[in-house]
Structure formats: structure tokens, C-alpha cells
């Protein structure tokens, strides 16, 4: 459950520092919006496709991960074709697909902890301004990962209680007790965090 989309591997792209990958993506996403020449967009798309497919993902998985977005792009491209003509539609498709493939490649080659380290660095300026604490982000992230399975267990229990009492399973009667039970834990969890001295004020 909630397994990272990272794929074990040792390709050059795996070894590239996270910061370089993210800056590349950001630069590409800005730059490509100023380009509508297919002579540039098609080779860019082919390059990112090769990059993505060379990462060692099984084919099914590789297509499964981007299938939903590719579908959304296809719909949007059809609309663009209808309103703005074929060239615009093709440019949009190759531009967005190139970005999506590059982004998916970064996701597949970067571990959660590498991302977290980078986020902590990026948040340093905010921390220095006193707006937030970088350590809070990893604490919050840990809490989510810790409590999602707990909520799923509770959901199963509530469903069983419904069945035992012969009640039909409805979103309201499921979600309301679940949300209340989950949020009620907040007080004791917060107290425990303070008691263990995680957040030095």
C-alpha cells in the first residue's frame, strides 16, 4: 500500500541529482510553451520517450502509469484540432507528452528520501523567514503514511459493523463515523508529539 512509484535501477538518469532533474523539468515546461515548431517538438518527444522506456519499467507498467494522462491529452488534442486546426493539435500533443514522459521518468528514478532532502533544502528560505519549519513537512508526511492503513482498518470495521447490524452500506453512514473517529485521535497524537519533544518551540 502506498508503495512509491520509484523503480530500482542504475541508469544515468537514476544517478542524476534530483535538483538537476527538477530544474530540467521546470525549464522544459516553460521553454516548450514558446515552441510550436514540430521540427523541434517531435524530436523532443522521441527523446523523452526513449529516456522513459530505457528506465527498466516493464512495458505494461510503463504505459499504465501515463495512460490516464495520455487519454486526457488525446481528448484535449481533439478539441484543439476541432477549434484551432491540426498543427496546433499536434504541437500540443507532442509538447505535453514530452513533459509528461520527462516527469514520469523523474518519478520513476527518484526515491522519496531524495525528494524529501531536496524539499527540506527548498524550504530553508521560508524557515529562515520564520514562516514554517522544514521538519514539520517530514513529520506530516510520516503521519499520513502511518495513519492511512489505520483508517483503512477502521473502514473495514465500520463496514463489518454495518453488516452485523443488517444496515445497508451508504457513503454517509460510513464516512461520518470514520472522519469523526480519525480526527478525534488528533488530540492524543498531538500530545504525544509534544511529549516526545519532536517540535522544539
Amino acid at each position: 500500500m502506498l508503495r512509491s512509484l520509484y523503480i530500482e535501477g542504475n541508469t544515468p538518469f537514476h544517478r542524476l541529482p534530483v535538483r538537476v532533474k527538477l530544474i530540467t523539468l521546470m525549464t522544459a515546461s516553460i521553454a516548450l510553451f514558446f515552441v510550436s515548431s514540430l521540427q523541434i517538438l517531435v524530436p523532443t518527444f522521441v527523446t523523452t520517450l526513449c529516456l522513459y522506456l530505457a528506465l527498466g519499467l516493464p512495458w505494461r507498467e510503463a504505459f499504465g502509469r501515463i495512460g490516464w494522462i495520455a487519454f486526457a491529452i488525446a481528448i484535449v488534442a481533439l478539441a484543439t484540432w476541432y477549434f484551432n486546426g491540426l498543427h496546433e493539435a499536434l504541437a500540443l500533443t507532442f509538447r505535453l507528452m514530452a513533459l509528461v514522459l520527462l516527469a514520469a521518468a523523474i518519478t520513476a528514478t527518484t526515491t522519496i528520501s531524495a525528494f524529501m532532502d531536496e524539499i527540506t533544502v527548498m524550504l530553508q528560505p521560508l524557515e529562515r523567514l520564520g514562516l514554517m519549519r522544514a521538519a514539520d513537512v517530514s513529520l506530516a508526511l510520516g503521519l499520513v503514511l502511518r495513519f492511512v492503513p489505520e483508517i483503512l482498518d477502521r473502514y473495514e470495521n465500520i463496514r463489518e459493523a454495518h453488516r452485523a447490524r443488517g444496515l445497508p452500506i451508504r457513503p454517509l453512514t460510513l464516512f461520518v463515523p470514520l472522519i469523526i473517529l480519525t480526527l478525534k485521535d488528533a488530540d492524543t497524537i498531538a500530545m504525544a508529539i509534544d511529549a516526545r519533544g519532536f517540535r522544539r518551540q
Partner: peptide, 28 residues
């Protein structure tokens, strides 16, 4: 913000097990 952060760092937190930076690069 926290959910989107988790998605961005490669956790499949959206419905249907979707996640990853690709969603932030897409048309939606």
C-alpha cells in the same frame, strides 16, 4: 498541499493509484 506534495514525490495517492510528477505536467 500535503497530498499534492506526496503525489509530486512519487506516491500513488490519487484515486486509481495515480501519482507522480507527470500529473502536474499534464493538461489537467
Amino acid at each position: 498541499v500535503l497530498v499534492i506534495l506526496m503525489m509530486a514525490i512519487g506516491l500513488p495517492v490519487l484515486s486509481g493509484g495515480r501519482g507522480g510528477l507527470a500529473i502536474l505536467a499534464g493538461p489537467t
